[in-house]
């Protein structure tokens, strides 16, 4: 009996140690040095995302902590680009600032805050690893992209609020001016009139035209498939680009730039290094402008 228990334990260990490399390999294998470069490119963009988020918190609540986090993020964001020797300190600062942010804002932390925190901590971990082990950290970052895409779609299907266009309909009813324009090509006039009328009460919120229903049902399926597509070599790069365009399009309509940029950053870990570097620069620029706007007399609510 003792021999039986020992051998079953060995079988369990064997299966787990075989499962882990399989899991990590699903998002592609690269040289460990490239993983380290990717971690740096992520951090140098995320520091400015953190600066913007902290600027918004400082202005909305007048918290000293927000001002300190904003200043620290900007300082390390500039430092990481000027001296290579400062990268370890900037990466540690990124993880510390992101962690502080989540702790201070919990449980109201926005999901992009969790994504940023996970990426910052992963980047720090990549930096501490040696050689090819760094790929384990990069795999975690890439898996985060796949998980977010997959579960965004799966949650919509599970909650069932895209079967009859319920969510989109309720958003159009409340934010008619923002959404009705972009979606007018697929929403019938009858649907739109009904939604505007429903806005005064509590419903019903649904579409009847086949075009609007098709769009609503396609969204979660597309997200799910894109998430899965990131896990196979033949579809990985295409899925990463299509997912980026998909997320950007949706977030532009919704007016949510922060999550869009964080997703762009994590999806860029699948792109060739030069393209990832260019995207890192774009994200940095967007958030320098956003942070400046947030701190300017124009006001906090101009950017979200």
């Amino acid at each position: 009996m003792y021999m039986g228990i020992a051998s079953s334990r060995h079988r369990l260990v064997d299966s787990l140690t075989g499962f882990a490399p399989w899991l990590l390999g699903r998002t592609g294998i690269e040289d460990g040095r490239l993983a380290s470069i990717r971690a740096y490119l992520l951090v140098r963009a995320l520091l400015f995302v953190l600066a913007f988020d902290a600027a918004k918190q400082f202005l909305r609540r007048g918290h000293t902590v927000g001002a300190i986090l904003c200043g620290a993020s900007l300082l390390f964001g500039l430092a990481i680009r000027t001296k290579k020797s400062l990268r370890p300190a900037a990466t540690l600062a990124c993880a510390a600032i992101a962690t502080t942010f989540v702790v201070v804002t919990f449980p109201t932390t926005a999901n992009h805050g969790y994504a940023t925190w996970l990426l910052c901590v992963t980047a720090l971990w990549i930096q501490r690893l040696k050689g090819q082990d760094r790929m384990a950290g990069l795999a975690l970052a890439r898996w985060l992209a796949a998980i977010i895409m997959f579960w965004s779609g799966a949650q919509k299907l599970l909650h069932g609020t895209y079967d009859h266009g319920e969510f989109l309909a309720s958003q159009i009813a409340v934010h008619a001016q923002r959404f009705a324009g972009p979606l007018s090509v697929v929403i019938s006039e009858a649907d739109l009139a009904h939604l505007v009328e429903s806005q005064a009460g509590s419903g019903t919120f649904e579409f009847t035209s086949w075009q609007a229903l098709s769009l609503s049902r396609a969204i979660p399926i597309a997200e799910l498939l894109l998430g899965v597509g990131l896990l196979f070599g033949t579809t990985r790069l295409a899925a990463a680009w299509v997912a980026a365009l998909f997320v950007l399009a949706i977030q532009l309509v919704a007016g949510e730039i922060t999550f869009a940029m964080v997703m762009l950053g994590v999806l860029s870990t699948f792109y060739p290094a030069r393209q990832m570097a260019a995207i890192s620069d774009v994200i940095t620029l967007v958030f320098i402008v956003a942070a400046a706007l947030a701190l300017s007399p124009i006001g906090v609510d101009a950017i979200n």
Partner: peptide
Amino acid sequence: LCKTKGVNPWKLGGWAMYVVR
């Protein structure tokens, strides 16, 4: 947790944004 405890789908990192208002 959203279904049983009324957790906000937009919070706690479940990636359920844009599911309900």
